[in-house]
Amino acid sequence: MRAASRLGQALNARAEILRLSEAAHDAVLLPREPGGLSHGLRAALAARMCRHVGDEALTAHYESYLAHASDLDLATLARPGGVCGDSLHDAMARHADLLTLSPREATRQDIAALKTVGVSEADIVRLSELAAFVNYQLRVLAGLRLLKEVEAR
């Protein structure tokens, strides 16, 4: 198959998308500088977002990262509605819920509420990046599952 063919170009593009998606996964879940979102907190919030959508496989993926977290209180945040009693973490969990369930309803007041409890602007960006990636990943996987179902017919 020639690399310049349409199929070759599509396969090359797909490989690049997969590479970039994996790099984004690692950057939002396991960054070198996690700021106020520890790796464990990121895993808990990602699992929580996946549970909202009902994706058991992706939930298990993120919970596997949570299993290595040293802060056991974060496990409660991995479940929708779960709180750990830390106002910062609980506010971030509520914001992750909002960005997953009804992102169009997010307003400046929601950002102000995060700042009020002490979430820094940099951590708000980190949280938004995490939510954007996990929700992108959920949508891609849902689309791939639909394609698989159609193909099986």
Rank of each mutant, 00 (worst) to 15 (best):
M1E: 09
R2G: 12
R2M: 11
R2P: 13
A3I: 14
A3C: 07
G8I: 08
G8M: 03
G8R: 00
L11E: 11
L11H: 08
L11T: 06
N12K: 10
R14P: 09
A15Q: 15
I17H: 15
L20I: 10
S21D: 15
S21C: 11
E22C: 11
A23K: 15
A24L: 06
P31C: 02
G36M: 03
S38F: 01
L41I: 07
R42W: 01
A46K: 00
R48G: 03
M49S: 15
C50S: 09
R51I: 05
G54E: 03
E56L: 13
A57E: 07
A60Q: 14
Y62C: 07
E63P: 03
S64K: 11
L66M: 09
D71H: 05
D71N: 06
D73V: 07
D73Q: 14
D73M: 15
A75L: 13
T76H: 06
L77S: 07
L77P: 02
C84R: 05
C84T: 09
G85S: 13
M92V: 09
H95F: 15
D97S: 14
S102N: 12
R104S: 12
R104V: 11
Q109S: 15
D110E: 00
A113R: 06
A113D: 00
L114R: 09
T116A: 15
T116K: 13
V117E: 10
G118F: 12
V119E: 05
V119L: 08
E121K: 05
E121W: 08
D123K: 00
R126E: 10
E129Q: 13
L130V: 01
L130H: 00
A132M: 14
F133C: 12
N135G: 00
Y136F: 13
Q137C: 01
L138E: 05
V140E: 11
V140A: 14
L141C: 03
A142Y: 10
G143S: 10
G143H: 11
R145H: 13
L146Y: 06
L146A: 12
K148V: 01
V150E: 11
V150F: 09
A152C: 05
A152R: 12
